[in-house]
Simulated scan of single mutants.
Amino acid sequence: MQKHVLVTGGAGYIGAHACKALAQAGFVPVAFDNLSTGWRDAVKFGPFVQGDLLDRASIDAAFHQFRPVAVMHFAALSLVGESMTDPGRYWRTNVNGSLNLVEAAVHAGCMNFVFSSTCATYGDQDGVVLDEDTPQHPINSYGASKKAIEEILKNFGAAYGLNHVIFRYFNVAGADPEAEVGEQHRPETHLIPLMLDAIEGRRPALTVFGQDYPTPDGTCVRDYVHVVDLADAHVKGVNWLLDGRGNRAFNLGTGHGFSVRQVVDASRAVTNRDVPIIQGPRRAGDAASLVSGSDRARTELGWEPARSTLPEMIRDALAWSQKPGFLR
């Protein structure tokens, strides 16, 4: 019997990689996406439903058609700067859309829910490796909206028995090493693809936002996780729930942070080319340092960030960006 998993945001960067990982694990991923930031061409591993989480009827129809055993929820607005200037859009899209999805899942009897959250729920807590017991004090509307969704899941778990796994992570990088899917945001905001675009001449230069943070070199520090490792964790999360192991939150990271300048230096070593740089001001809502440990994910899920080294993430992203027909 086929086991379908409804993957919201399944035409997006992380969602498409998760769909591939699900298919490789024997599931049938159903990509549910409104294509506002996703790509129809990224849906290669299972059925596609064009729908919107703010449209409850389209969600109900997907549950009725496919009867999924689990939901994997990626769909969200995720730009920190935009979330600070247009918070209403983030609360409306992320929280209202997620509430529609959760209610539809419970109504359909699909009681296994894997949620893509973020380390941005912790806020700016410098000098510590964040774990699952770290107090959550988000400093931007994006992180606050994700924290609110976590609370919704806990409430629905208590009221209706909705089983859920929550994954908190920050900077995702790299691409499928077979180059079937990769990173193509509109607009692109992630450091590594922006850096490669600058090297390849697709943009004039990389803007480094802020040089006076309380970090060793003054630039923001982040924990980077390879998208393939991240997708693997989400599949493990589905199996965790199907095995009846209960509700759990997991951080996903390497426990090692890298500054913007360190990432630039690593790219120079991989590509043997300099990165043109423009110095920019700080962006509102950016934390100085976010490093996410993953001891719980390692010990309980059996997860390892095996591909999550800077050279490997940069090499895989570079191979994807050099694929014939690539457009940014």
Rank of each mutant, 00 (worst) to 15 (best):
Q2A: 14
K3C: 10
G12M: 04
I14Y: 00
G15I: 00
H17Y: 02
H17C: 14
A25G: 00
A25H: 05
P29D: 02
P29R: 03
F32P: 09
N34D: 14
L35D: 05
A42E: 07
A57E: 09
S58K: 08
A62F: 04
A62V: 01
H64Y: 09
Q65L: 14
Q65F: 03
V71F: 15
H73W: 09
A76C: 12
S78Y: 12
L79T: 02
L79V: 03
S83Y: 02
R89K: 15
Y90E: 01
R92V: 08
T93I: 10
N94S: 04
L101V: 01
A104E: 10
A105M: 10
H107P: 01
F115K: 07
S117N: 11
C119R: 03
Y122D: 03
V129R: 02
V129A: 01
D131F: 04
T134V: 08
T134A: 06
S141R: 05
A144V: 14
A148P: 12
L153P: 08
G161R: 11
I166K: 00
F170K: 05
N171V: 02
N171I: 05
V181S: 04
E183C: 13
Q184W: 12
E188Y: 09
L191M: 13
I192C: 05
L194T: 05
L196W: 02
D197E: 14
A198Q: 11
R202V: 01
R203N: 05
R203T: 06
F209V: 08
G210Q: 02
Y213A: 13
Y213E: 05
V227N: 04
D229N: 10
D232W: 09
D232A: 10
V238S: 11
N239W: 10
D243S: 09
F258W: 15
V264K: 04
D265Q: 15
A266R: 13
S267L: 13
S267E: 12
I277M: 13
Q279M: 09
G280P: 05
R282D: 08
A287C: 15
L290E: 02
R296V: 12
T299C: 00
G302K: 14
P305I: 06
P311T: 02
P311W: 01
D316R: 01
Q322D: 06
Q322M: 07
P324I: 06
G325I: 00
F326P: 03
L327H: 11
L327W: 09
